[in-house]
């Protein structure tokens, strides 16, 4: 279950509208709304969902840029696999 943070850049006059849209996305916490920046923390089931969330954020009207900041994948599925598979080359 990855935990990530992102900064969403938008125009000042649209910031509340964008923040409201972001709050509707499952797994998203809007933690700070500051001038033209919105800090978002996400908690998702897996890294696929994590990636899908920021794709959705990019599509919200008024979002000018999504900056990726922090990504903890300690509990993601890859790290559950304690042992890396032996390589097989044919």
């Amino acid at each position: 279950m990855p935990i990530s943070s992102l900064i969403i850049k938008t125009q000042k006059q649209e910031i509340q509208k964008v923040a409201d849209e972001l709050r509707r996305l499952k797994g998203t916490i809007v933690s700070d709304v500051l001038d033209e920046n919105i800090v978002v923390v996400t908690e998702t089931e897996d890294r696929k969902e994590d990636k899908s969330l920021w794709d959705q954020m990019e599509k919200i009207s008024g979002v000018m840029q999504v900056d990726l900041i922090y990504h903890n994948f300690e509990d993601a599925e890859e790290n559950q696999e304690a042992k890396i598979q032996e390589a097989e080359i044919k």
């Binding site: 279950m1 935990i3 990530s4 943070s5 992102l6 900064i7 916490i29 933690s31 700070d32 500051l34 920046n37 800090v39 978002v40 923390v41 908690e43 900056d67 900041i69 922090y70 903890n72 300690e74």
Partner: peptide
Amino acid sequence: RREFLKMSAQMAALAALGL
């Protein structure tokens, strides 16, 4: 523990904004 990870994530973003 997960709440702390979320706090770390938030703090990293705020720090990137100079806060």
